[in-house]
Design a protein around this nucleic acid. Structure first.
Ligand SMILES: [Mn+2]
Ligand SMILES: [Mn+2]
Ligand SMILES: [Mn+2]
Ligand SMILES: [Mn+2]
Lengths: 121, 121
DNA sequence: GAAACAACTTAGCCCGTGCTAAGTTTCGAG
DNA sequence: CTCGAAACTTAGCACGGGCTAAGTTGTTTC
């Protein structure tokens, strides 16, 4: 959850300069109330900073998480495409899978995309 | 959640003949209270049948889900091993990843394990 | 058969994530 | 400058999934 939020916030900032709650409402297709609640939790956890009616910014910690999450998401998605999954499915599945992929598995995916499948021993 | 539960119940039954709540308490490392609650929900959803102080059995629907989940879990785990991930990590990561893998992605994994990586176009 | 122990249930609590409904703030037109 | 619409907050609700504490049922063992 936190990962998807900071990723979406970073995306909005990089696209529009700022991130407003309404961007997240659209992105996640939830209500303003839900976004408001979630943002409070993210702020409590030191990932974002915001004030009532003001745009949302990422803390250093939030930026770090966003970068890692974005990278992981993209590697997983690309990997799925690489093993022959359709665009649509790769996009859908990577949205969930990304949150369970360890650093080791991520490295394995990158290795495979570069060097192909390891010897069948 | 449901998938992991029916999978664990099927496993207990195939190993001990029956599944008791205490098996799930041990398997998931949660309290009896939690298992009791969860089983109620599974029963409400038509996946299991049980009566107070009695063993837990799977409905047809529950068995179907268990079989699919078990297969998916195993394919994902084997696939991770196949791309060079360690036993420990493959076991850990597959526990989460399995729940986000569509049929299409599952087929792609099986294909890759059989025929290797698709042509780089 | 009574006592002790294991298995289980039930009540009551917390938090996360979602909602609706209602009110507040901000901002752009007119 | 005012008003309406868009953005946002707040309160109150529900459910999933976790807990502790306390009580109940079942089973073994003496
Ligand atoms: Mn993501
Ligand atoms: Mn995601
Ligand atoms: Mn599983
Ligand atoms: Mn699992």
């Amino acid at each position: 959850m936190a990962e998807d939020y900071v990723e979406a916030i970073a995306e909005a900032i990089s696209e529009n300069g700022i991130c407003r709650a309404v961007d997240l409402v659209r992105h996640f297709d939830v209500t303003h109330a839900t976004v408001s609640n979630t943002i409070s939790r993210l702020q409590r956890d030191g990932l974002v900073v915001t004030e009532p009616y003001q745009p949302i910014t990422l803390t250093a910690k939030g930026k770090r998480m966003a970068t890692k999450a974005r990278n992981r998401h993209e590697v997983v998605r690309t990997f799925l495409l690489r093993i022959g999954v359709s665009e649509t499915t790769a996009t859908e599945d990577s949205e969930g899978i990304e949150h369970h992929v360890s650093d080791e598995t991520l490295r394995a995916m990158k290795r495979v995309m570069k060097d192909g499948i390891p010897a069948s021993d």
